[in-house]
Design a binder for these strands. Structure first.
Length: 738
DNA sequence: ATTAGGCGATTTTTT
DNA sequence: ATCGCCTAAT
């Protein structure tokens, strides 16, 4: 038991309290991951078979890291451990048990984009206008209903308005269609196991006996469905250890319910509560800043974070003229830092609220030849050509997957148009067969052109052929041969445009990914690969060992640490993010996100904001974030590039005076001339600001949400209680400030 | 049936 | 600014 001496007393207690429910509230950098890994290692060490342990994490990456570490501690006997994300572990259980609730083991997993297209097709089938009712919004409603375990019929009974009625109607068909396709969406991966265990007590008991010790990471980010699932699994032995930090709960938008962690002691009355409050990660300055910020929140478990680390350097605030300047200034600081400390680029991370912000920063990095890796954003597996090819594989694996079938039935073009599809659908429905199946009986199909008929026959024989050879050749050969037969690669080559070349490369890359996957796991099936694609995210694949700066959203940054962290875009409307007025709870979630960002930093933290920023292709004027005021002046130093551009509340006269002042120091090159003159702007003359209340001749009173554009084309979006949101040209609107 | 060109929405965050 | 979707033209 040598390894326990790596732990402080609190951590040891968390590791050695093996029986009964236990909650570990772990502040940032307090060794949470360490506790989890050592606890598992300890269990195995004292003789618990690894196969009796279930550990659920938030990302696959966290799971893999821990697994490796555990192997180091106790060796190969840990291999039988069940560890992964909720979604991946449950997907695995559903492959085994799904037949009990009417799914075949080769079911397909739909991502949000797949769900959306299914919802759209249901809407058009039911004659619900996608103009009037936003399919995205309907998808989101259905998803959140599922997260709360509200079933279609329950939902239908509780509708409050027309939109919800339509949603209810779509929801019913959506679930039917998923089942018909032998497919599940992300939410089903949580829901269906609950259904399984409810209906099938024997199966539940089997898993009770298997998972005698359960550990949950990032408990603050679990939703209702996950909560119920954990309760079901743990109800017999009650050996459940949850680890989390309410202050780092940042997934409410996805249904995460912070009550799960706040009420743990209520749910398990004899629960042991352990707080880890010593921070090993950050300097005193950084930790104090984080602590000060989070104290502004009302909803939280009180904690006293402390550290023995040194005070370290002050936090540096970079006040920038615009997003381009922000990128340039960050680059300059990266230069300084890499020269000053012996630090590699992979010790540096740049974080932002929205993926769209990465662009200006990427430009700056590229201009200065600084290598970077970017996490998230437009994902490889979301690209059209990749999804198209994957759809072929999906159909091959699950012949009932109508959604994927529809995607590829006329790709590449086979002369199958909408009319033919309508006929095929009707035919399939009447026979209760899948579309692919129906396509094979295309001879009986009336009202279809010869061309379409031949096309359908072609698709059908194509799949018959590959179903047959599927088990005979390796999956990489199978996939390559299928792609070759489609002829899309030469098609891209012939097109010759840079865009087509990228597509060509992407398809090649997909094929290499499959090869690599099957080399890594000798028994891997195509089913396994497809599941991996659905459930693995960018962050899971990220490898911090390259010499490159890492760019990512604040959400992706959770669980990571870097010696140097930049948080960019500290502006109202961006961090905290809003498209309209925020209520307290929303601001608190944004603040937690900010807190997560701050606490990623070990040695040095930079914050930055831009006075102006391109959003939606227009210049928008930004106000520094309220979160900046929550830091103490003593711990902060400011580098100001924007002396010329005083705060927007200032009067015109002062601005004129300010214009003649020279900026103290030009930090970076070539980005100083893009700013428009403030003093000519209608908005500044009128003293209009985001959040101002104004009056309009016809619309009445309203509140300004955004201001964009320059000079004559300057526009404001105003929220009028009477008529809703309006985008107005200030030149004509004659707004009166109230 | 395919394609070009115009229009409108889109940007919150993700398993 | 960019992407997807729709319409009109071929």
């Amino acid at each position: 038991m040598q390894f326990l001496k790596d732990l402080n007393p609190k951590q040891q207690e968390a590791v050695k309290t093996v029986e009964g429910p236990i909650m570990v509230v772990a502040g940032p950098g307090s060794g949470k991951t360490r506790v989890l890994t050592y606890r598992i290692a300890y269990l195995i060490h004292i003789g618990v078979p690894a196969s009796n342990i279930l550990a659920l994490t938030f990302t696959n990456r966290a799971a893999n890291e821990m697994k490796e570490r555990i192997v180091q501690l106790v060796g190969d006997k840990s291999k039988q451990l069940w560890m992964g994300t909720f979604h991946s572990v449950l997907a695995k259980i559903l492959r085994i048990e799904g037949e009990k609730i009417g799914y075949e083991r080769n079911y397909t997993i739909y991502d949000s984009a797949d769900s959306l297209s299914l919802i759209k097709s249901i809407m058009s089938a039911k004659g619900i206008s996608t103009q009037q009712f936003n399919p995205q919004a309907i998808r989101a409603r259905i998803s959140s209903a599922k997260n709360q375990l509200v079933m279609p019929d329950d939902y239908a009974r509780r509708t409050l308005d027309l939109f919800e009625e339509k949603t209810a109607a779509v929801y019913v068909d959506y679930q039917k269609q998923l089942k018909h396709n032998n497919a599940m969406d992300f939410d089903d991966l949580l829901l269906k196991p609950i259904e399984l265990f409810d209906r099938n007590k024997k199966t539940l008991e089997k898993y009770h006996d298997r998972f005698r010790f359960i550990l949950i990471d990032e408990y603050q980010d679990t939703n209702r469905a996950q909560y119920i699932l954990i309760r079901l699994l743990a109800e017999k032995h009650k050996n459940i250890c949850v680890v989390g930090d309410d202050a780092q709960s940042i997934y409410a938008f996805r249904g995460a319910d912070i009550r799960n962690i706040l009420d743990f002691e209520h749910d398990y009355p004899d629960a042991r509560l352990i707080r880890l409050e010593q921070n090993y990660r950050s300097t005193k300055t950084i930790l104090d800043a984080a602590d000060r910020v989070i104290k502004h929140n009302v909803d939280q478990i009180a904690k006293d974070l402390w550290t023995q680390n040194q005070a370290g350097e002050k936090i540096t605030l970079l006040a920038c003229a615009d997003d381009r300047d922000e990128g340039g200034t960050i680059v300059q600081k990266i230069y300084e830092e890499t020269h000053r400390r012996k630090i590699d680029l992979n010790g540096i991370a740049i974080m932002y609220r929205t993926n769209a912000q990465s662009r200006a920063i990427e430009d700056a990095l590229r201009r200065n030849s600084i290598p970077y890796v970017i996490i998230g954003g437009i994902e490889f597996y979301q690209r059209k050509e990749v999804k198209d090819v994957l759809a072929y594989f999906r159909v091959l694996v699950n012949l009932r997957d109508d959604e994927s079938f529809l995607r590829i039935v006329n790709y590449p073009s086979r002369g199958i148009g909408e009319a033919a599809i309508v006929r095929l659908r009707a035919f399939a429905n009447s026979k209760q067969r899948s579309l692919l199946d129906a396509a094979s009986g295309v001879g009986d199909l009336p009202g279809v052109t010869t061309k379409a008929r031949n096309g359908l026959r072609e698709v059908s024989t194509l799949f018959q052929k590959y179903v047959q050879i599927k088990s005979e050749i390796s999956i990489s050969e199978l996939c390559r041969s299928l792609v070759d037969e489609l002829g899309i690669l030469p098609m891209f080559k012939n097109e010759g445009t840079p865009d087509a070349m990228t597509r060509w490369e992407n398809v090649q890359e997909l094929l290499s990914a499959i090869t690599e996957f099957s080399e890594r796991r000798s028994d891997a099936t195509l089913e396994d690969f497809l599941q991996d694609v659905s459930l693995v995210s960018d962050i899971d694949e990220w490898d911090g060992s390259h010499n490159a700066v890492t760019l990512m959203t604040l959400h992706s940054a959770k669980g990571l640490e870097f010696p140097i962290v930049f948080i960019s875009g500290l502006e109202e409307g961006l961090l905290p993010f809003s498209n309209s007025a925020l209520d307290r709870k929303e601001v608190e979630e944004e603040r937690r996100l900010y807190y997560v960002g701050i606490t990623r930093a070990m040695e040095k933290l930079y914050l930055s904001y831009a006075r102006a920023r391109y959003r939606f292709g227009e210049v928008t004027y930004q106000t520094p974030s309220r979160f900046l005021e929550e830091l103490s002046d003593a711990s902060l130093e400011t580098i100001n590039n924007v002396q010329r551009y005083p705060a927007r509340t200032h009067h015109v006269n002062e601005e004129n005076a300010a214009r003649h002042r020279k900026p103290p120091k030009q930090v970076d090159h070539d980005h100083s001339d893009v700013m428009p003159d403030y003093e000519n702007d209608t908005a500044s003359c009128l003293n209009l600001r985001i959040g101002s209340f104004v009056e309009h001749e016809t619309f009445g009173k309203g509140k300004i949400l955004t201001i964009a554009g320059v000079g004559d084309s300057m526009k404001a979006v105003v929220d009028f209680p009477s008529v809703g949101r309006k985008s107005l040209l200030l030149q004509y609107a004659h707004l009166k400030v109230l």
